[in-house]
Amino acid sequence: MGGTSKIFDIDPVSKILYIMSKKQDIDEGPINLSFEERSVWIQLASLGAILIGYGTIAGLMLLAGVIHIVPYVPVFALAVVLLIVLMIVGHAVTAATSRLERRDERDKLIVWRAESGEQCGVGVGRRGIRGSCRTHLLDQQPMDRPRAVTLDVSI
């Protein structure tokens, strides 16, 4: 019986009272996410929204024939600013509506896991950018290659 709870070891009357007491947890209120959990979700949602927005605008620009990198810089800068604003507002609202509680061991685990996932995402993105730069390099004329190499190294 290793996989079952030992709750039914208690006497029958207690068992009935115990089952009736299941309402107790409902009376305690719903189990909301902790601040750290909310924080991670806010970051993920903000990043996703901004990424989709930037991807859409950049994609439309690319479809419109913009092939130079300079026009994309303000769009990217705006995306970064919006991302920061979204995260600040999200965290402020969450902090204002959450119960004051300190970070515990489970919260730390949540943050570690989120950071691990984030590092994986950054790693994949960085390799993707490097890969696309290398592909771009192969298309360059020999005269243009030194500049392109500088760009690649700077990333």
Binding site: E28, S34, R102, D104, E105, R106, D107
Partner: peptide, 16 residues
């Protein structure tokens, strides 16, 4: 005992 009471005694959140 409520989950919150236990959480307060052991120094973790109710979610934990």
């Amino acid at each position: 005992m409520t989950q919150q009471a236990l959480a307060d005694q052991i120094g973790v959140t109710r979610q934990t």
